[in-house]
């Protein structure tokens, strides 16, 4: 029994039980569990690729990517560009992804360059990078970008972008609707989005079975060893950072199309801690993360943060958000302190 728990890990055990308890208490709190299930599935799909993006950097030894907002902002940039270009439908989301990837590639390259100069302090420096870059992009949203499309721009004054840009005219829920079906009157399954997430996971799994992926894992596990085996460790780290940033940008497009809005300005910062916390809940360590870690973590974290507020919100107002903060920050603390035992 204890061996089994050890294998699953205490935090995952506790959170799973907690999540189960939340579902069971749904009827008592007056929450329709069918809504709850729909929400959990939706949020799982919308966050999966974003959380998956952390894997390359963790594996390469760059730690938890607190610089994930860099990728998120890149995603937002791709999304607003596609709107400016009036690109719609599948072509629209494809345009958004291509622009986002190109942008993320450049940003990721610079970001990786910085991280290679401060080995050992990646997590704190990446946090600073996030704040700095998100701040810079705020200026871009307000003034620097010469965008004219009415959907993007504040209705009054005609200057600066809205904080919430609707995607309804372009490619909102385009992935969700693919092969989409319903169970009963309420539960919706966004098959396209889940398939896309699964495809990304599969590609990542393939990558880590390639020679490059194996070298990256070794570079994270013991850089000295990798160097002695002829691996260019700095290059591995750079590749991992570019990959993480680019995948985060793609993940964000998936996120926006489900959410049906592009969120600008400081909102990317709000996703930083939840993303990191989710992969940790899934069982990842500072230098090791697997695809199952990502899937389990996304499910548990999104499950708690979706159902938790519904149930708690009906009992005591406002406790839901506090609960979410305690869980995400608590998990990060747990992972960071556990480092010493390894």
């Amino acid at each position: 029994m204890t061996a089994a728990i050890k294998k699953i890990g205490w935090p995952r055990m506790i959170i799973s039980v907690f999540l189960l308890a939340l579902f069971i208490s749904c009827p008592f709190a007056g929450v329709n569990y069918q809504f709850a299930i729909t929400d959990v599935i939706g949020r799982f799909g919308m966050n999966l690729v974003l959380i998956l993006s952390l894997v390359p950097m963790i594996q390469a030894g760059c730690g938890l990517n607190f610089g994930v907002p860099l990728g998120i902002v890149s995603g937002a940039f791709g999304a607003v560009c596609s709107i400016e270009l009036n690109a719609t439908g599948l072509f629209g989301i494809f345009t958004a992804m291509v622009i986002a990837c190109a942008f993320a590639f450049v940003i990721g390259f610079l970001y990786g360059f910085i991280l290679n100069r401060i080995k050992g302090d990646e997590m704190i420096i990446s946090t600073y990078c996030s704040f700095a870059f998100v701040g810079f992009m705020c200026m871009a949203w307000v003034r620097l970008l010469p965008f004219k499309n009415a959907i993007l721009i504040y209705g009054y004054g005609g200057n600066g972008m809205r904080p919430q840009v609707p995607l309804s005219e372009n490619w909102a829920q385009i992935l969700d609707k693919f092969l989409h079906f319903k169970i009963g009157p309420i539960i919706e399954v966004p098959v396209g989005m889940l398939l896309f997430g699964a495809l990304c996971c599969f590609c990542m799994w393939l990558f880590f079975r390639s020679k490059l992926g194996t070298a990256m894992t070794a570079a994270g596990s013991n850089p000295e060893y990798a160097r002695a085996a002829g691996v260019n460790v700095d290059k591995m780290r750079l590749v991992s950072v570019v990959m993480s940033t680019t995948i985060a940008a793609i993940g964000m497009i998936v996120y926006y199309q489900h959410y049906t809005f592009v969120q600008l300005y400081m909102t990317p910062m709000n996703l930083m801690l939840p993303t990191v916390a989710a992969v940790l809940i899934g069982g990842a360590a500072l230098r090791k993360a697997t695809i199952p870690n990502v899937i389990i973590g996304t499910f548990l974290y999104q499950g708690i943060t979706t159902v938790g507020p519904m149930v708690a919100g009906s009992a005591f107002a406002d406790i839901a958000d506090a609960l979410r903060l305690v869980i995400s920050n608590g998990m990060i603390l747990y992972a960071l302190t556990r480092k010493e035992h390894r």
């Binding site: 020679k211 194996t214 070298a215 894992t217 070794a218 596990s221 013991n222 000295e224 060893y225 160097r227 002695a228 085996a229 002829g230 691996v231 230098r287 090791k288 390894r342």
Partner: peptide, 26 residues
Amino acid sequence: SEDRRGFGLLLDEPIYWNVTFSAMQV
């Protein structure tokens, strides 16, 4: 290497990785 734990081994990886990694890369 004389520095077994530094240059010589991937301590947190399985034996078969340690044995074959260099040959795979090189």
